[in-house]
């Protein structure tokens, strides 16, 4: 028996109550873009869980990153194709509510992961909230600084929910340390080049910057490049737990990166969708605990996502 078929067989044997549809089940997975490594991790996680459960996955990704109209029309296409279930990351949590309602009307069960959609009927929600990731990652940096010093924030795309919440988390972390001074909070639009240039400008303004809180890894690493270029040192944290960030944490250049665990979200989204189809009991909501990757715990993140194992639903469901 081929190795990959084993878990599916075990699962089939276990769910004697439900009908065994395994070969025909198709899960449509929606993500926001092809450029952010986070969503790549979500897709790999989804494929990984699908393989284990013996179902097919079809990926839907807007060609223009985070395009609302494109995702809306992809949803309309999918409704016509009638997959067994949908795992959904809305490109915008409000604008895609009508899309979820259309999916509901078509009778296709939808499991929401990552950004919580503001309406519609959901099988379950799996996510990690931006605010808490910002808060935990921010605290990690400020503790490293010994609770004092000058810091700057690099914001993501202004007006995006992710950036707003992460930056709010950063700011609340800063409020916990009265001896920390926030020098500036400027936008880098999640882009490495823009963050690099903003940081170059801020370095001119401030002779002493002790810490940088970046709303994603790309901007954090851009800030590192700017600091290196100016022969300056500061502790830098980012968010996303990208492969490059993990390498830099290992080599001691980046202090830490907050992790959303896109891989696990992809795994759990598909697993919940499939279990729901098979009439098994599923949790209504899983909020993953924020993990801050630093030099003490980076090792598991060195494993390429393609080789990681999906966690068991029972292990995560209690949180």
């Amino acid at each position: 028996m081929p190795r990959r078929a084993l878990p599916a067989a075990v699962l089939l044997a276990l769910c004697s109550a439900g009908p065994a549809l395994a070969e025909n089940e198709t899960i449509a997975v929606f993500t926001k873009n092809q450029t952010n490594p986070y969503f790549q991790a979500v897709r790999v996680g989804a494929e990984s869980a699908a393989k284990a459960l013996g179902v097919n996955v079809i990926q839907y990704i807007p060609t223009k990153p985070d395009s609302i109209p494109e995702q809306l029309s992809q949803v309309e296409d999918v409704i016509v194709k009638k997959p067994s279930a949908i795992v959904f990351v809305p490109v915008d949590y409000k604008a895609l509510v009508p899309a979820v309602e259309k999916i509901n009307a078509a009778g296709i069960p939808v499991t929401n992961i990552t950004d919580r959609v503001a309406g519609g009927k959901l099988v379950a929600y799996v996510g990690a909230d931006d605010y808490n990731i910002g808060l935990s990652t921010g605290r990690a940096l400020l503790k490293e600084l010994g609770g004092k010093g000058n810091v700057v924030i690099l914001e993501g795309v202004k007006g995006s929910l992710t950036s707003t919440d992460r930056v709010r988390g950063f700011n609340d972390a800063i409020k916990e340390f009265p001896n920390v001074k926030l020098l500036a909070s400027q936008p880098g639009n999640y882009q490495r080049l823009q963050a690099l240039q903003v940081m170059e400008n801020l370095i001119q303004s401030f002779p002493q910057i002790d810490g940088v809180l970046a709303a994603n890894d790309a901007m954090g690493i851009g800030a590192l490049e700017a600091l290196d270029g100016a022969n300056r040192k500061a502790a830098v944290v980012g968010i996303n737990g990208s492969r490059e960030a993990v390498e830099l944490i290992k080599s001691g250049r980046l202090l830490a990166s907050g992790d959303f665990n896109g891989f696990v979200q992809g795994c759990l989204g598909v697993e919940i969708a499939v279990r729901n189809l098979r009439k098994e009991e599923t949790p209504k909501e899983i909020i993953l605990k924020p993990v801050v990757i630093d030099k003490t715990n980076y090792q598991p993140y060195e494993v390429p996502i393609e080789q990681r194992q999906c966690p068991k639903l029972s292990e995560t469901a209690t949180k």
Partner: peptide, 16 residues
């Protein structure tokens, strides 16, 4: 020059 400056390449480099 961008590569040399930011020390990396990713798909969304050209946006903006």
């Amino acid at each position: 020059i961008i590569l040399a400056r930011i020390n990396s390449a990713q798909g969304d480099l050209g946006e903006d």
